[in-house]
Write a protein that binds this DNA or RNA. Structure first.
Lengths: 205, 205
DNA sequence: AAAACACCTGCACCTTTGTTCAGTATTTTT
DNA sequence: AAAAATACTGAACAAAGGTGCAGGTGTTTT
């Protein structure tokens, strides 16, 4: 993008936000009012520059006719839908169709790039210390390893639970963040695996 | 939705598609051209009916001023995008364009039907007792009244904060859920209003 | 048969909004 | 120092677009 002044950028931002919110561009006079520009031509000067530098496009003789170049709002790229896992049926992979309760659409900004993601309904209050309540939906990024202290979705005996991950020499400690729960210790050979690490939380009140 | 005729539905669909595609409503004359209605008033009849039945909203004396009720705008069938409010500039309405930090896409199931919704970035740890951490995004359903004990987004001196709502005879007590914060008492005449009530929480980890 | 509604024409009017011209002061670039 | 760009004022105009009134013709409901 070619360089623009602070003033021009402020006007551009206003137009962009206005369109995002109102789905329709402001009028020249609305922009003028906003920035204390008394003459419509003052605004048009700014628009002329913004257009010549490719920030906006003007549809001539059209009310509310300031448009943005296509790529400002990646249309469908804002949302991603992912499977919500209720409970995990014994012996099935997590993402097996029978475990998928529904699909959920979340904003792309919630997700790390290029990873497999799923959502898990949280049962129990073992993670209240981290602001995760029973009934919340946890967004999990699928991966097999984790760093010490991270919150992971752990698969123990075919059940998925959220816990803090504390590995030791020959065992793994899984700690709740609610002090009323004792840490769980998993030794080698037991049925345990990491389903993924916590990437987000969604709650419906 | 109240019943409408095939003709009215065709016009409604055209408007909806137009807005989805162009981000901005068609003009009365554009609708007329499309359907071969030669008089602007023929179109206005149809719009009058659509508005009285709640399919559209008209902003009077505004170019391209046909609006759709809030949640007709799904980015996909299951998603709705809503404005994320960062901080609120003094003296501006909450949804003023300058307060909108970005837009956020959330699943339709997060939202109550037929209400105006916005998202608010949470600052501070005053609500940790309810699992709401600093940096979380609160989904707020706009409404002016609340029930005792509900979590509201309160506007005090132009700043929005989440608090539990406890009204009394001549004052209102706003309680945090973190015991280290004292309740705030607002008396009549002070600059206070309810922006809405908490409908959900989203956290990016 | 009367009333209500859907669906339209035609026209005038007026507000909103975009366009253009002429000019000024200040800052930045060459 | 000159040229160019920025950032406006002010006024007038024109096109776009919303509003309102006075009808008209069918179809459906009462």
């Amino acid at each position: 993008m070619r360089k623009i002044t602070e003033r021009q950028h402020a006007i551009y931002s206003y137009i962009k936000d206005f369109i995002l919110l109102r789905k329709c561009s402001p009028t020249i006079r609305e922009i003028g009012d906003k920035f204390g520009i008394k003459s419509t031509n003052g605004v048009r000067d700014a628009l002329r520059v913004l257009e010549s530098k490719g920030y906006i496009k003007k549809l001539s003789n059209q009310a509310r006719g300031i448009a943005l170049p296509q790529n400002v709002f990646p249309a469908s790229a804002e949302a991603v839908s992912l499977p919500l896992i209720g409970s995990i049926a014994a012996g099935t992979p997590i993402l097996a169709a029978e475990n998928v309760e529904q699909t959920l659409t979340v904003d792309k900004s919630m997700l790390p790039r290029s990873s497999e993601i799923f959502a898990l309904r949280v049962q129990g209050d073992s993670m209240v210390g981290d602001g995760i309540l029973s009934g919340d939906i946890a967004i999990i990024r699928m991966q097999k390893n984790a760093e010490r202290g991270q919150i992971i979705a752990a698969l123990i005996d075919g059940d998925a639970t959220l816990k803090h991950y504390y590995p030791a020499e020959n065992r793994i400690e899984l700690r709740a963040s609610n002090p009323k729960y004792m840490p769980i210790t998993v030794c080698e050979g037991e049925d345990f695996s990491i389903a993924g690490i916590l990437a987000g939380v969604i709650r419906k009140c």
